[in-house]
């Protein structure tokens, strides 16, 4: 009954060769897009266990001595406008100088702009048991931030499991299966 199918073997060989021959190519790096990244950050709230609903304040943490940080803060505030819908929540922004996180008040999350001393800002967020997010992946890799987000060229989300556990943040299973946990 069983027949030989020589063409299948040939395709496997060609496929393998093609796959290997492309190995010299490398991935291109991502670039920042504050407006889209804050959208991604806001939408992740939907997948937070016991996530917030209604009006949620994101503290947009910036370093006033660094023009890039200030520019990102301005870009994000413009994108949020009077409120950005994210599932059952509406995210509004509140600019907070990195040096004044302690007096940020009751916020739903800290969003660290690039250039902020994330070690200090992250520690402050952790002390408040509050979610910390950044487009700077170094922040999440270091454990200072709970979550890192990138929007371009495609959406990437990285969660630091230890940092999440430290503030008691838990994400829904389907979400966790589609992101990178470190």
């Amino acid at each position: 009954m069983t027949k030989r199918h020589p063409r299948s073997g040939a395709l496997i060989a060609v496929s393998g060769a093609l796959f290997l021959s492309l190995s010299s190519l490398v991935a291109t790096p991502a670039f920042a897009d504050g407006a889209r990244e804050i959208q991604v950050a806001g939408r992740t709230l939907t997948f937070l266990d016991g996530g917030p609903t209604g009006k949620v304040v994101f503290a947009i943490v910036y370093d006033s001595s660094k023009p890039a940080s200030v520019a990102e803060k301005d870009q994000i505030m413009a994108a949020l406008g009077s409120g950005m819908a994210a599932g059952g929540a509406t995210v509004v922004g509140k600019p907070v100088d990195a040096g004044a996180i302690g007096s940020a008040g009751d916020v739903g999350a800290f969003y660290m702009t690039r250039g902020v001393n994330y070690a200090a800002a992250g520690a402050a967020a952790k002390a408040k048991k509050t979610l910390s997010i950044s487009s700077d992946m170094a922040c999440v890799k270091s454990g200072a931030c709970v979550m890192g987000v990138a929007a371009t060229p495609k959406v990437e989300i990285v969660v630091n499991s230890a940092a999440a556990a430290a503030i008691g943040a838990k994400f829904k299973a389907a979400f966790k299966m589609m992101i990178k946990e470190i």
């Binding site: 991604v40 939408r43 992740t44 939907t46 997948f47 266990d49 599932g87 495609k154 959406v155 989300i157 829904k172 299973a173 389907a174 979400f175 589609m178």
Partner: peptide
């Protein structure tokens, strides 16, 4: 724990079909 898969929210988040 978690619920079933919310295709719409995941699609909005990742910008493509899930």
């Amino acid at each position: 724990g978690a619920q079933s898969i919310d295709y719409g929210s995941l699609e909005s988040l990742f910008g493509e079909a899930v």
